[in-house]
């Protein structure tokens, strides 16, 4: 290999080079298409199963086209469990968390980014350190604390903490807030702007993209969250969609796989729709949160 590296490349004729390129491109396309089919297959399977009659869904070899199409499965699935109630519960929790996280994290991040005060760097170092502490480590003592607060059996433990900022988002937003020009802020101050107004009218609008990313990822996290609701929610009427769906699934073969797949599709749907609405934010958000190193 290393030898080859130093020997000059044989000069290929232009046409053979073009042919090689073409073969390469075709191969790449074939590979991508094959992989894409593999990745899409579970979705397709889910969709077609959700539209079938139970017997057809379990037929071997698999049937791919429902006959007849049973759109009624979706109605049945949403009636077999209080699907809409769970959806509303999930949405309410998500909304509370999104509001809580974005406001509190923005406030705190601005505090860290803009003001110089004794102890700031220590506090910030602690913030960074807490990023390492995962939920499972805290779940037992937090449970004990919420018990003493008489919050068990309510939804409070699932959203109140979000109003007290989380390390990761503070870190992310702080990076953005540091790009807000100091001169701009000082100028506003000279114009008689109060600190609250500066934050509200200058800083937040300037950093909207970052806030949207935080809100979006917060929504996704809470829409998907399973462990915390599993621990804190005991009343079926408060269940989130993840819990409800899991309970649905665990009913020992009582329910048909077609209905289960219909419910699963319905649960995935909002996320997919959200993705197509905010595709750019998603992709940017991942690069942003992933590349922090």
């Amino acid at each position: 290999m290393s030898l080859e590296l130093s020997t000059p490349k044989p000069v290929a004729s232009a046409s053979s080079l073009a042919r090689q390129r073409l073969i390469g491109r075709v191969a790449v396309h074939v590979a991508v298409i094959l992989l894409a089919v593999l990745f899409a297959l579970p979705f397709v399977w889910m969709l077609k199963t959700s539209l079938m009659e139970p017997l057809q869904a379990k037929a071997m070899p698999p049937v791919w086209l429902p006959n007849p199409f049973r759109f009624d499965n979706y109605r049945a699935a949403t009636e077999a469990i209080p699907f809409w109630r769970y959806t509303v519960n999930s949405l309410v929790l998500c909304a509370l968390n999104v509001v809580g996280t974005t406001t509190s994290c923005a406030l705190v991040a601005w505090g860290f980014a803009h003001y110089r005060f004794p102890g700031r760097d220590l506090f910030f170092a602690i913030t960074l350190a807490t990023m390492m502490i995962p939920f499972p480590v805290l779940m037992v003592p937090q449970y004990a604390i919420f018990r003493d607060l008489h919050w068990i059996g309510t939804t409070l433990p699932l959203w109140v903490p979000s109003f007290f900022a989380s390390a990761y988002n503070i870190f992310l937003l702080r990076q953005f807030f540091r790009t807000v020009p100091r001169d701009l802020v000082d100028a506003a101050r000279i114009d008689g702007c109060g600190e609250a107004r500066i934050f509200w009218q200058i800083v937040l609008p300037l950093t909207r993209p970052a806030l949207v990313v935080v809100a979006l990822f917060c929504f996704m996290y809470n829409w998907n969250d399973f462990l915390a609701p599993l621990i804190y929610l005991t009343d079926d009427r408060q269940f989130t969609l993840t819990l409800g769906l899991q309970a649905f699934q665990s009913r020992l073969g009582e329910i048909e796989i077609t209905l289960l797949m219909a419910a699963t599709t319905l649960m995935i749907l909002p996320v997919i729709v959200l993705f197509f609405l905010a595709q750019k934010t998603f992709i940017e958000g991942i690069s942003l949160t992933g590349l922090k190193s």
């Binding site: 505090g111 805290l138 900022a165």
Partner: peptide, 23 residues
């Protein structure tokens, strides 16, 4: 500064520091 980061101070104390010590 302290005012702005106060949510974090409360949150850190109640939902992190105390749980860690308790745990």
């Amino acid at each position: 500064g302290l005012l702005f980061i106060s949510p974090w101070i409360v949150g850190f104390t109640v939902f992190m520091a105390i749980p860690l010590v308790l745990s």
